[in-house]
Design a protein around this nucleic acid. Sequence first.
RNA 1: CCGGGUUUAGCGAAGUUUGGUAUCGCGCUUGGUUUGGGACCAAGAGACCGUGGGUUCAAGUCCCGCAACCCGGACCA
Length: 442
Amino acid sequence: MSINDLKRLLYLREILGGEIMLFSKFFAPTSKDIPSDVKIASHQLMLRAGMISQAASGIYYWLPLAVRVLEKIMKIICEEQDKIGANKVYFTTVQPAELWIESGRYDDYGKEMLRITDRKGGKFLYSPTNEEQATDVFRKYIKSYKGLPTILYQIHWKFRDEIRPRFGVMRGREFLMKDGYSFASTFEEAEKIYHKVFKSYIRTFRRMGLTPIPVQADSGAIGGNMSHEFQILAQTGESTLYYDKKLLTASDEELMKVFAVTDEKYDPNTSPIPQSELMVSKGIEVGHIFYFGKKYSEPMNAFVLDKNGQKLYPEMGSYGIGVSRLIAAIIEAFHDERGIIWPEPVAPFDVTLLNLHTSNKDCVGACNKIYRALSESKEVLYDDRDMSIGEKLGDADLIGIPWQIIVGEKNLSQGVVELKNRKTGEIAKLSVDEVIGRFLKK
RNA sequence: CCGGGUUUAGCGAAGUUUGGUAUCGCGCUUGGUUUGGGACCAAGAGACCGUGGGUUCAAGUCCCGCAACCCGGACCA
């Protein structure tokens, strides 16, 4: 930091007081260079916006801008999980192999599982999923039917050693996932939980500005239709969805029953709905829920005693949301040729304040006043960087914060600043007080 | 896992055919001029050319092995 930078920083701190979010001090290494071999928009934009940086194939550093979005997403998920009575825990990222040997999956899981040996030669693995651990925690503490039903969930890093990672964090090997596990005394109770989670997932994704499409998924050996994937419509999606157009207008209650499947399960000969009612779209899978009965409770000897003192093996289900993938999915759904357009609930900041003329006292004064007023109730990124105007405006569009307040000397000499909506591109010229008023009302 | 490709400064590339000790753009540093859509001038810093071996007086360049990474496909939150 040069002496001038330091002086300016101290000056701003003095004027604004306390914590200020200055772009010049915020670690968001933006770039105008488009990596040539990066194919999809979300991957390109995340790199260009300085959100992620590759550490190894399918493994990424998460930089501050992305972290802020991850935190917004996690907060929404946790609030919705709380509403259905799920308990948040942290299982572990490194697990002893014993549990997987017990469930019978240690040999089945294959090379996707990263196997680790500790200094004593003990067998461990990096969690690709946590059914065994959830079952283990459950069996250690819950001994009576009165402890049912129970839902445990976590948001934690997972690792699956994909053969072919691609599309940035969309299909990385290391990923952040919300995974929940339910324990119920009867099938009926398990079904009730499943429905509750289903509806909760719809709400969760909607709160992020997304339109989730629940599709029936393969529930494997258990059978039945108690498995759904939640897909987000996006042209670059890896799945092809076939669904009844009623789906887009159905109420939450009806949603689970409306026809929707991915291409693997679609057969025009047996389709329950006519061609004229059918929609076909590309989707990105961001959630998956399923019921799997006693698949883990029995082999792992997780039981409670029922009213008659008899062993009862709980009916289980598991519920996943790809948190890190969601960031990419949201960008796929919301971007234009200039950059990202964040939905407000998950935006890294609410508003970005651009000082186009950092050496102009009036501009500095206006920006400081706006920052001070808005930062009481909004998250504001103040672009105080001393660089060319095009670069600052370009970065603002790239980063995609929903609102831009643009302060420049020409407009300010007329007594106005600009308020730009990133999504619509609409620009309003308002006085400093008016622009403050706009945000304090919201 | 099958097929194709790449690896030279922080990033992106040229140089490899024809062996002679590395070039350009962006970025970075310093100073100055600029300021409404990625500006200009000047002066700098920065590379054991992915890695191991071989051929040669001499290897970024030729030969052999290995690794990492990317793309398409088959598979997965």
